[in-house]
């Protein structure tokens, strides 16, 4: 899931969460596929941000998945002998992979690793 400003929304993106106005009014539900017309309508209703599935937009300054995973590794470098924290690191890495590439991709990676 990614949260994007509505001006970066494009047709065919799929909502990961309900589209809501800043006042909290729900306009359409999670799972809705966006169209150009729908985006315009949501903007007119005052929607500012949308949560969409996957990770369709690369924001300026945003790091790639590979970079993030490498930094994750670095942050854990002082505690790499701790089994609990090692497990935590793996869960975070896997979560990021699934968020960005989907669950099938992670399965494929795991198979390849074997």
């Amino acid at each position: 899931m990614q949260r994007i400003p509505i001006k970066l929304a494009k047709a065919d993106m799929v909502l990961a969460k309900d589209a809501v106005t800043p006042e909290g009014q729900i306009l359409c539900g999670a799972g809705t596929k966006l169209s150009e017309e729908l985006i315009v309508r949501l903007r007119h209703q005052g929607v500012l941000v949308l949560s969409v599935q996957g990770h369709p937009v690369r924001m300026p300054g945003e790091k790639s998945l590979a970079e993030r995973l490498k930094e994750l590794d670095n942050r854990f470098s002082k505690v790499s002998s701790d089994p609990v924290l090692r497990a935590l690191k793996h869960l975070i890495g896997e979560y990021w992979v699934v968020e960005e590439k989907g669950a099938e991709f992670l399965e494929k990676l795991k198979k390849e690793a074997k």
Partner: peptide, 24 residues
């Protein structure tokens, strides 16, 4: 530990602190 592990914000140095296993 968790918030540093995720790399959100910054606590001065970049490392995940050691875990106290009795606390865990």
């Amino acid at each position: 530990i968790l918030i540093r592990a995720l790399g959100f914000g910054s606590g001065g140095d970049p490392w995940v602190p050691a875990l106290d296993h009795a606390a865990w």
